[in-house]
Nucleic acid binder design. Structure first.
Lengths: 200, 200
DNA sequence: TCTCGATCGTGACAGATGTCACTCGCGTTC
DNA sequence: GAACGCGAGTGACATCTGTCACGATCGAGA
């Protein structure tokens, strides 16, 4: 089984690569450390499975998934992430991922889970699947989300307005409504809440 | 060589454990996922080397290092981290660490670096060592740092004041001076700057 | 068709934030 | 002993933030 690994932390990526290569039926045919390098690498190496981290420079695994499926039909995408956020899981499955694995399980299970996915199963942490079904979708509109991420970086209303081509007053309105929807009392904690819910 | 692994991400920790155990001269005698579990595990397992992550729940690797050295004399501490921040390196060496390894190097080098450290060398990334020497120490006082981390979480001046048992006016003064020293224009970007410099 | 929600905007207001000047006590250092 | 830096505090001020009411447009649905 030909595997592509996409994970930005070099030591972790190479460790996974070495371990998977030790399995007799696995062959790691490509390793990349950036999201925007995945598609090109997959075109070259034609993997059966792509194991994608979510948080990567260049592009997230969630962004890459649909591009990869369009470009290399037949590849099985498995998303691997630190954060078991219901929003992430939903988006991953919507994007076409066939597995959603968490980095807080021992590696020993990784190989079997990969084999299950390639065998046709959809592999998802059961607890996570349950909470994803129970969790309401993001209440934030696109604009509210955009404004919130900028605000969380420390940008002032003015700076956000310039960056998003909006009036400062409008930015404040969006911020205010995002703060209200998250139940927070300022933009920073609103962003924390939204991030934990996987709304960003 | 007996090794203790402390790293909060289970998959990474177990992957490292498996790989290091494959080396004939290595034996992983303990694995923990929390900073505050390191000392007890070390007392039990008496490792020759402790490989400590910095960012861990319970306690950071930097906090644990001096405790571990006091409790288990003779153990060689190696700090392993994602972030090559000069401030981290300085603090690690001051705390008594004998190695400072980055997670953005391939695993292949890990084993040899561990052997070098146990052999008496102090192993530090050369580039990082250079920039640590060139980097001025943190200009922030303890109070400024404390106030800044709380502020970055989205706490209001009032909340920070209560949590640190200070007057609100004093909190604002500290925030203001921290903002000035980082060259930022508000607490959030000040915290970002300070974090990137390893001042927190 | 009419309504609803999203987008974008204005103006006004209270409260939070950031800046500044200035004070005091305490421990180091010169 | 004087000078200095740090912790801690006060009061005043301008600006930024968050809230609210309100208006306008536009597309999707009932």
């Amino acid at each position: 089984m030909r595997i592509l690994l996409a994970e930005d932390q070099t030591m972790f990526r190479t460790a996974l690569g070495t371990l998977l290569d030790l399995e007799p039926d696995f062959e790691v045919v490509a390793q990349v450390g950036r999201g925007d390098a995945v598609v090109a690498a997959a075109r070259e190496s034609r993997p059966d499975v792509a194991l994608l981290d979510i948080e990567m420079p260049g592009a997230t695994g969630l962004e890459v998934t649909p591009l990869l499926l369009a470009e290399v039909p037949g590849v099985v995408v498995v998303v691997l992430t630190t954060f078991g956020r219901p929003g992430y899981l939903k988006r991953a499955l919507e994007a076409g991922a066939r597995g959603f694995l968490l980095k807080d399980v021992p590696v020993e299970r990784l190989a079997e889970q990969l084999r299950a996915v390639v065998g046709g199963s959809i592999v998802v942490d059961p607890q996570l699947a349950a909470s994803a079904l129970a969790t309401p979708p993001s209440p934030l509109t696109d604009r509210e989300r955009e404004v919130l991420v900028e605000g969380a970086r420390g940008a002032t209303v003015q700076e956000i307005a310039v960056r998003l081509h909006l009036s400062p007053a409008t930015v404040r309105n969006y911020l205010s409504s995002a703060i209200g929807k998250t139940g927070a009392s300022n933009r920073v904690s609103a962003a924390k809440v939204a991030e934990q819910q996987g709304w960003l």
